[in-house]
Write a protein that binds this DNA or RNA. Structure first.
Lengths: 215, 215
DNA sequence: CCGTCGCGTTGATCCTGATCAAAGGCCCGG
DNA sequence: CCGGGCCTTTGATCAGGATCAACGCGACGG
């Protein structure tokens, strides 16, 4: 979109997710992938929709804005995942590449795509509904703990989790501010529950404790 | 079974909802409807799933609980709407009748059901994702305003909105406490933006103002 | 007719997380 | 090697909504 978006919400670091590029792409065979640089828009709210997208490598954020600029990220999509489902003729959300990202466009008319569509949509629905519990009823520590556990689970249950998104992205996903996210990170670290080998990497040290915290 | 429900509570509410009972039931023709008294469970988290449900009359709440009892209602379903979609073999949520409610059970294997399934699921997905913005980024007044507008819209855009759910249900849907919900109701009323003809009825007086408040 | 119960409203105080502010690291270009 | 910009961290203060508490109100049942 505009310079506002760029200045506020783009990030430099691309390529972090390259390690996790093992997308199984049963639907995408033969389709060419398009590269989206970090921060670039895949589609915008209000645009006509109709296609589906699959992340080949990298990561995508799906979000909405309020008129005063407040942003809520409703979902992150990592390698292998599909997004772009809409109930309507036009998009209700924005989609942006978080880091350098390869995207395959799928024509939803293809029969093998249709077959996969419903399960994927249902998966997204359950995830969104579970996120409602986090945003509606959990405190800052619980939200961050849940985020770590979710990311770990989605990356195969590894204790070492790498994520491509900035603190601002995490904050806008969890309904918090960057300061609060940062403070919770520090607190969990000082308690020895996690380690922070680098800015965008977390190692879960006390899994059980973290699970208990996520309530 | 009906007699149970004719207790004062749903007596009022039952009558109210009758106005809106024009569910188009293309999927349900021939299926018998089951009656669920107010507060009764339709299915529980963890139960095996597989069926779909359509509200014939009345209203349903879909929710999740945290271990300490905190509750988040992820959706209300009114007459004509379908629910019970799951990505998995078992339910991730609870479903309860809010007031005396008639439910049709649909076998999702029926081909005509399958055809309707995807659009319904997508509709639910979009609604859940929009609710994420409310819970993550809007303050108490904005949430309540959005709730009134949503209910009005779902009841055909009428200015007079009647809802079957208690303040506690509304609070648990909006991620607030009953006290806060009550205070916001009072504030909007004192500003002349709404009128409260009865406990479970709101009349939107200044629609434009309310829309602006919902941001 | 009164007492009780469940739900809703209103008031007083507290606390979590937001906001405001400043400084610290990291990466880049020069 | 240095300087600047961006992201992150940390600190101080503020405020919105939660919590605690009391009361109102209508609907029953005795």
């Amino acid at each position: 979109m505009t310079s506002f978006e760029q200045s506020h919400y783009s990030n430099q670091l691309g390529g972090i997710l390259l390690k996790h590029q093992t997308p199984n792409t049963p639907l995408a065979s033969g389709q060419p992938a398009t590269f989206f640089p970090a921060g670039s828009e895949i589609y915008a709210q209000g645009e006509k929709c109709g296609n589906l997208y699959q992340v080949e490598f990298g990561a995508v954020r799906i979000y909405r804005l309020l008129s005063d600029g407040r942003r809520q990220i409703s979902a992150f999509h990592l390698a292998g995942e599909m997004f772009g489902f809409e109930a309507d003729k036009s998009h209700h959300f924005f989609a942006e590449a978080i880091c350098g990202t390869g995207i395959r466009v799928l024509r939803p008319s293809a029969s093998h795509v249709v077959a996969e569509l419903l399960p994927m949509a249902l998966q997204s629905l359950v995830r969104a509904q579970e996120q409602l519990l986090v945003l509606g009823r959990q405190n800052a520590v619980e939200r961050v703990a849940a985020f770590f556990l979710e990311m770990s689970e989605r990356q195969g249950g590894l204790r070492q989790v790498e994520f491509p998104m900035s603190r601002l992205d995490i904050a806008d996903y969890l309904g918090l501010t960057i300061e609060t996210v940062s403070r919770v990170f520090s607190k969990l670290k000082s308690k020895g529950i996690i380690r922070l080998p680098s800015l965008r990497c977390v190692e879960i040290v006390k899994l059980r404790t973290l699970q208990d915290m996520a309530a």
